[in-house]
Design a protein around this nucleic acid. Structure first.
Lengths: 358, 358
DNA sequence: CTCCTGCTGGTAACCGGTTACCTGATCGCT
DNA sequence: AGCGATCAGGTAACCGGTTACCAGCAGGAG
């Protein structure tokens, strides 16, 4: 109604006939103010439609900052689900949370982290696995120290832990365990020639899944076959292209496929279909992540508690949770004391056929 | 390296042996400064790892604010894709963008808008259709005026325009046209009994799609049948439940289904499958939106330029685009001068069977 | 050799809040 | 009635930047 431009606390004070201190106190809540005075102030606030300037507030008083989550892309369900968990938990804690996207671009990640430092974000949650090389490790270590110096916390989700003294909290999924379970599922259905589709050397998530796959094979006495491990990025197009290429090279030498994630599985299924192969009649397939396409494809996969990961990241960031041995599962990688791993479980749907005994 | 706590511009000035003004000027870029002085400053900045405080900056100088996009949930592909468009365009314009989610809760929307006012966001983009009632209209009008008073712009995406004098920009999809096209597609394949699954009275997006559906039927001389219009929220579960209920009530009295969106279609397809009906052999189906499940389900649907919507919203918000008659398609609703409508097109996949002539 | 001009860089006011410190008034007590 | 204790509310310093305004100094003109 009476909306006017740029109303400040002095305008409110003048209008209410009190001092700025009183207005601030009324708005702050704690300080004792006479009911009559308080009323004058709230009336003035309402009449002027006064909204305090968050920047001025942040500048003068030390107040809770925002919680930022940085992901590759919000259009990838894996990230979207984690981000949702973060948002929910943050909302529950009464914090502002913001989602930033990098598009997988290291340069943009850099400028976003810088921007979040400028904003004095209270916590920065970096999500998503990456190829770990020296340059990455150095960059992360730098972030961690810079953020720590500014009083913010850094949480890495689904990324490998950094060195011992680096101030970063880490939470992730038990990729090796899940991959082991789902591979064992295929093995116990009688499959012996299982194609792993999604090799990405140096990429920690994929590496962990491959490790689980190999371990399960070894336990069942099935020799590893390099020809059954093919490279593919973790998206639909890559899964499609890789499977197409494979099928074009000759008749399938495998009876089942373990796709690096559900999107890869979706692409692979499309390629199989186009090649006249039916799932699961001709080829069995399992995915990983249990993100939306899985249900529609009736895909057996490994369920990840995305939501839980996001919520845990926020709790860690706010110091509500002390990483160490508390809540769950086996440790994934280096046994640092600041790493938390969330358990996973297999979701059986209809994409795996039981083979009769040979 | 030399990370220290809370470094201010005065620290840098002291270290460099110059005044704060000089430091600010070096950082600002424009002002002429001797190379030697500049070097001293940049060295001090680097040594102290100084990061300017965004709040202080925002407070003193009028600098570009953030662009905020407010959506229901980032886990719904429709929103995620639009949000991605916003992020991309904002990044391209060199702006910080943040995604906020409401979970569909009006109360949370309220507090988010308030928070964005406090943050002095430059633009607020509200996405997603809603049930329009008096309370909604009043609330939006209030937002619009409040944001305008604070110097921010409000952009509504896929929401109906407000009254004439309300300072809000609107951009949306041509829902009526798309629904018309896809219904006509079914009709020309020989279908006459087409079930519309997704009725939501008062919900503008659904209403527009129903309107297109009815118009296409009428043009082809097919009488409207209330029994063929069934209610369902726009998510997978609702589509599943509604179709299940329908099938339980008796054998299908329709040969094709027009689902309110792709998620509804996904749910409906699952219910059909569980009931022993095959798509498209027994029942044809089309969706709307062309979001990820569509491809995996081989679903014929209407493609929406989500990305374009997001980008357009940002351009509108930044005043790069003047709504009026410029870029595209037919007008959706009220012909206000500040409404922009983006065209859609049909994507033919394999979920529709051509019926032989009767 | 002055004086003016142009350029560099310093001083201090300001952005809009919060809050330590202080004042003036009210109240209860002796 | 006189005293200190208590409490509401005002004054002003401060948070960390930006920038209007001004001063000092060098070089060119007269």
């Amino acid at each position: 109604m009476t909306a006017s431009n740029r109303v400040t606390i002095r305008d409110v004070a003048k209008r209410a006939g009190v001092s700025v201190a009183t207005v601030s106190r009324v708005l702050g809540g704690e300080y004792p103010v006479l009911a009559a005075t308080r009323n004058k102030v709230v009336r003035a606030v309402r009449e002027l439609d006064y909204v305090p300037n968050a920047h001025a507030r942040a500048l003068s008083a030390a107040r809770p900052g925002a919680i930022a989550i940085v992901v590759n892309s919000v259009a990838v369900p894996y990230y979207a689900l984690i981000a949702q968990g973060v948002e929910e938990q943050a909302a529950q804690e009464g914090r502002l949370s913001l989602i930033c996207t990098t598009g997988g671009d290291t340069g943009r990640e850099l400028s976003i982290v810088r921007l979040l430092r400028e904003q004095r974000a209270e916590a920065v949650i970096l999500v998503g696995s990456v190829v770990v090389d020296d340059e990455y490790r150095e960059r992360m270590t730098e972030y961690a120290h810079a953020l720590a110096a500014a009083g913010s916390r850094l949480v890495l989700c689904g990324r490998p832990p950094l060195g011992e003294g680096v101030p970063a909290l880490v939470v992730g999924f038990d990729n090796t365990g899940g991959a082991h379970a789902v591979t064992a599922h295929l093995l116990s259905a009688g499959h012996r020639r299982i194609l792993y589709l999604g090799l990405r050397p140096g990429h920690t998530t994929s590496d962990s899944r491959v490790a689980g796959y190999r371990a399960a094979l070894a336990e069942h006495g099935v020799p590893a076959d390099p020809d059954l491990e093919v490279e593919a990025e973790f998206d639909r197009e890559a899964g499609y292209a890789a499977m197409r290429r494979r099928l074009a090279a000759g008749p399938p030498s495998f009876t089942a496929v373990f796709a690096g994630n559900d999107l890869v599985a979706a692409g692979a299924i499309q390629a199989l279909r186009e090649h006249g192969l039916r799932v699961p009649d001709d080829i069995s397939i399992v995915g990983y992540d249990d993100v939306p396409p899985a249900q529609d494809l009736d895909l057996t996969t490994v369920h990840l508690p995305h939501d839980e990961l996001g919520r845990t990241a926020v709790r860690l960031a706010l110091g509500r949770l002390t990483p160490g041995p508390p809540s769950s599962g086996p440790m994934d990688g280096a046994g640092s004391a600041r790493v938390l791993t969330l358990g996973t479980h297999i979701v059986v749907r209809g994409s795996v056929r039981r083979l009769g005994p040979r």
